[in-house]
Amino acid sequence: MQESRSGHFVHQKGGYNAFIPRSLPPDPPIVYDETLQYLLSEADRALARLDGMAVTLPNPDLFIAMYMKKEALLSSQIEGTEASLKGVLEFEANLKPTENINDLREVVNYLRAMDSGLERLKSAPISLDLVRDIHCILIKGTRGSDREPGNFRTVQNYIARSGATSIRDAVFVPPPPERVEALMKDLEAFILAKGSVPPLIKIALIHAQFETIHPFLDGNGRMGRLLITFYLCWKGILAKPLLYLSIYFKRHREEYYRTLNEVWTDGAWEAWLRFFLQGVIEVSNESIASAREIIQLKDGVVDTLLKHEIGGANAVKLVYALFDEPIITTREAAEVLGVSGPTAYQLIGRLEDIGILKEITGGRRYKKYMFADYVSIIERGTRPGPGN
């Protein structure tokens, strides 16, 4: 069939057309018109502001840990899970889950996969071995665990439209399985190659190519989104893993799939790059705004403690601990502060009275309390559903 700038469709014996992508970078090369140049400049600036904002937070690592939870949640929601941030926090706090345990496990696996990948990238480059190992962590023990975790597929897969029952009704059919290994090696070579392609352009191309190859039987979307964070941190574009585009992809799901489809059918790389860069700008600015809210929340909470003459240094120390673990028990508070149980119980009671903490276990024994104002900032846009 006719070759486009991005690849070509090949008719298969089963009566469907599978897409074979061309090597990156695109040829003819990307056309950097005025709009694309502007978006690239704005995206670079927004990302730099986000990276710089982290140092002004009460504890940047704690902020990042919560944002990683948000990304894990949203990336899993795109694939159909119904977990919430509150549910994930309760699961981590060893509360009896009120949500689907399989959904929660998928989110927790995503967090483990991200942690493992970022740790490995401190001493090694992105590689196919890393991709396979991270995919195994991502999928193992979940509903996709019977679909060869960590192994490139050996059968044909496809992206189905709603109600489709046959591959011939698919929205998109990735390359045949016998082509996957070579295509992934080709993508690895592009990732590792030195050159003049701007980093944000390069990771946009990498993400699209990975989704085009669809090398695994399950988890391709989540793995492809993880690659964005991995690449930006590995290349030093971000000192901390702060940019997560799942909220943008979820919010603009139809446009996400449409622009990818136009890459496959028309070689419309520039349209995809404009969409991707707009996401970097949008998400960076929203994350900066959230970081500022957290700083204001910290200052406001400390002012509230002073106003009510609560607890001195111990109260401030406990509040700072809540930015790390926003669900806490009296015993945990006592351990954090190095005080007796009754002292911690009294302090938590005062924080509950003035609205800093909210009891979430229904008045039972072994009560747990949530730092609700902090959680509400992080959880924006994470309600299950297509555009929430």
Rank of each mutant, 00 (worst) to 15 (best):
Y110N: 09
Y231Q: 02
D324V: 00
T265C: 03
G144H: 04
H308G: 00
P241Y: 08
E379P: 14
E92C: 01
R49A: 09
F275S: 01
G385Y: 07
K69C: 15
E379W: 06
N261W: 10
A124W: 02
L205A: 08
A189W: 08
V319H: 06
N220R: 06
L50H: 14
E293W: 04
G117R: 11
H8R: 14
E71Q: 10
W234F: 11
L130S: 12
E119C: 06
T142N: 06
A271W: 02
S376H: 09
K86M: 12
S196M: 04
N157E: 04
I20G: 08
S145D: 08
V131L: 15
G311E: 03
P326I: 02
I237D: 06
Y244T: 03
R147N: 02
K307H: 11
S287Q: 15
T330P: 01
Y257G: 07
L305W: 03
D299A: 13
T229F: 06
I206Y: 06
L318K: 02
R179I: 13
A313L: 03
A54W: 12
P149C: 08
L351A: 03
L232G: 06
G312E: 06
Y256K: 10
L104K: 03
V301P: 09
D27Y: 07
V197S: 08
L318A: 03
M66H: 12
T56S: 14
E325I: 02
A289E: 15
V336Y: 03
L322H: 02
G117W: 01
I294V: 15
L73E: 03
M66Y: 02
E254Y: 14
Y257R: 07
V173S: 15
W234T: 03
Q296F: 01
I206K: 00
F9R: 11
I101N: 09
P215W: 00
F249R: 00
T329H: 04
H252A: 01
F63S: 10
G7T: 13
S127K: 10
A124R: 15
I247Y: 00
N102I: 08
A333T: 05
M184W: 08
P215C: 00
A313G: 02
I191G: 07
I360L: 11
H252Y: 13
P58T: 04
I377A: 13
G219Y: 06
D299C: 03
P384N: 00
P58Y: 11
V336H: 00
I377Y: 14
G312S: 10
H308P: 01
R143E: 07
A372R: 13
D373T: 13
L192P: 04
A164S: 11
G52Q: 15
